[in-house]
Amino acid sequence: MAERGESSEAVMLKKTEEEKLRKGKMIVGDESKAGYEEEGKKVKLVTSDGVTMEVEISIVKEMEIIQTFIGATDTDDSFIFPISNVSSHILNQIIELVKGEYDQELAKKLSHDELKEILVAANYLNMKTLFHFIATAIANVIQNKSVEFVRDFFGIVNDFTEEEEAELRKTNAWAFEGVDED
């Protein structure tokens, strides 16, 4: 009974999220609407590899690190913001993910390096929804995977001695069993 109660709450949450997304979309699409004139505007971002990219303000608004600057200065077309930690390739990926309304299917197409770079970029740009989304995507990749797979994923060097590692595996043997194949 409780389980049922919980799941219906989860469904409700999902619905409001969807509604939010739909509203966001409506506003972006409806350019004639007064008060949202700035929606068509673009902001120039300079990436780590020196590329200047024009990004729709609706996407830039999710980047809280830039948002503070937009709020402070009266933005016009000359507004240029350097994002020295993010490459143009990763920024393009981010734009696609935001436009794709954070669909986990899109994340499945990303390489391991791309996933990690987007996570670091989302953290740097302070994009909360993207960060949550990409951390979940990485969790999905490494969940129930072997220790060796995850070491390889993050480029981690095993600094346990053989005895220490054997002891750890022995104590929690069940957790190491039934993992997916790499």
């Binding site: 951390a135 969940q143 981690i156 750890l168 929690n172 957790a175």
Partner: peptide, 17 residues
Amino acid sequence: ILLKLPTKSVLSFKGLS
């Protein structure tokens, strides 16, 4: 990332480093 994983995976990842 670990906060989004179930206990079993997190426990086995103690053995990473």
